[in-house]
Design a protein around this nucleic acid. Sequence first.
DNA 1: ATCTAACTAAACAGATCTGTATGGTTATGA
DNA 2: TCATAACCATACAGATCTGTTTAGTTAGAT
Lengths: 196, 196
Amino acid sequence: MTQALTRKRPGLERVLKTADRLFYEEGIHATGVDRIAAEAHVSKATLYTYFRTKDDLVTDYLHRRSRSWREYVAGELPEHGASPEERLLAIFDLLGEWFLSPSYRGCPFINSEAECAPGPSSEAHLANLEHRSWVHTLFGGLLKEAGVAEPEAIARQLMLLYDGSMSGAQADPSVDWAAAAREAAESILRNHQTSH
Amino acid sequence: MTQALTRKRPGLERVLKTADRLFYEEGIHATGVDRIAAEAHVSKATLYTYFRTKDDLVTDYLHRRSRSWREYVAGELPEHGASPEERLLAIFDLLGEWFLSPSYRGCPFINSEAECAPGPSSEAHLANLEHRSWVHTLFGGLLKEAGVAEPEAIARQLMLLYDGSMSGAQADPSVDWAAAAREAAESILRNHQTSH
DNA sequence: ATCTAACTAAACAGATCTGTATGGTTATGA
DNA sequence: TCATAACCATACAGATCTGTTTAGTTAGAT
């Protein structure tokens, strides 16, 4: 270990925060490296010691977005109900809180796929797939816990509501798309609950 | 009427077709004006007599996408069932056919909002709102015809499935998201059908 | 105190993009 | 035939973006 690795790099945190805000709120392509460096109060040369290319910074942004949302949901769900059904429906409540933010701009992963070069091997696409796989597992696990038959298929139906509410809230924030998604999810659950 | 307006402009059609293909399949920002002109076999100077700016061409692309989809659906639905419920569910079948296309790349309107400068007055945003309003009216009308109570609210739930299936098919074409959406829609309808 | 990693500002190279200008060519209708 | 609208290829202006370079400054560990 050299000293270099133990020294603090206070600028790095500012770069990450600034990049996250600008990439999400104004778009990846619309945000230049110069602006990130300026708003993070870091010289461009320093930024390029943190990240080899802008693309690396974009990939890092996507992975951080995914991880922080997963951690947030994992931390909140246990407090949102004792039964798996309640916790499942609470996912839509958490989405609804996100949608209330004035800086809400849709799903970062869907947006990044639209902005970046497409292709099944693009980093944006892989990040999107990885994140969606987590969502599917989250729904699937709660459905299994609830004793619902065919949890994987129903989890996909709930993902439609999850993704659809993000699109809706992006296009028209005046509608409570999260509440609509929650109600639709209740209909779906009602149709697949084991009578007992 | 001068002669100028009666003369044919065979290049215009090629420009429209090329722009539509490239904007949708490769992205708006990734598609340069030079490339559109080259692939349409039209000089750039000529293209700029058809459209004052690239932005005008983008706006035209979005409006044409919206109109052609609306016309396609309006033409297909009557042949997809006698009852309003059947026709409503057939919307998801039409989406499913679209998703099968190897060039499917998600919703052009959501994508354009991610790519272009945001803001409530942007042409991309207005086109998105206009198109979504048509979708909502389409679902709402069929629900009214079917005698479903609160058709506007249920129409919004169906829009979640509509939008969600487009996102799903964009991210992971290996899953039949349209079929999942249709099944979810059936659950929702079952929960709101008037017993008779 | 001094060495050195980390940082700075600013200029630069090279690529790419939109939109315009130039100067010449084709094809149509009267 | 001939006027003219529509077209062509090409070069250019101006802006913007990524990434590099240069030469010099700051601040922490020993």
